[in-house]
């Protein structure tokens, strides 16, 4: 028997469905966006101040706790927000199912790998001698 027929019309209309989720992506995109308004402006201003900087200047900058912490937060928010955005782009434009799934997997893995590399680099500088 068709499962749908076991549910009342009201149940079908208001039922949350099997997943009971779906707004997480939307919310995460907004929360990271708000975080990136502040972090992004701070980071952009820092990069302008460091334009053409040599390595010693960059090391001195990231050796301070506050810039190191804010840079790590920027990297996390940036790659999280970027992965959420690229996911929508891939879902919108890649119509072949296997290509879509594999693009999503590769994009996620690359995003996480780049974020970890960035965080590790900042920590290495921050805790380095």
């Amino acid at each position: 028997m068709d499962r749908q027929q076991l549910r009342s019309p009201l149940g079908r209309a208001v039922g949350p469905g099997s997943a009971k989720e779906g707004v997480e992506h939307w919310w995460a995109q907004r929360v990271t966006a708000v975080a990136l308004i502040l972090l992004g402006l701070w980071f952009a201003a820092s990069l302008v101040a460091l334009a053409g900087a040599d390595r010693a200047q960059v090391l001195r900058w990231l050796h301070e706790p506050l810039p190191a912490i804010l840079t790590i937060l920027t990297v996390i928010a940036l790659f999280y927000h970027g992965a959420l955005g690229l996911q929508v782009v891939i879902e919108d434009y890649v119509h072949s199912e296997w290509l879509k799934i594999s693009s999503l997997v590769v994009m996620r893995l690359v995003s996480v790998a780049l974020a970890v590399a960035g965080i590790f680099a900042v920590l290495r500088i921050a805790f380095g001698g």
Partner: peptide, 12 residues
């Protein structure tokens, strides 16, 4: 974003 990570990793 990979270029940003490159810059950070290069500095480290």
């Amino acid at each position: 974003s990979p270029f940003l990570v490159w810059w950070l990793v290069a500095a480290a």
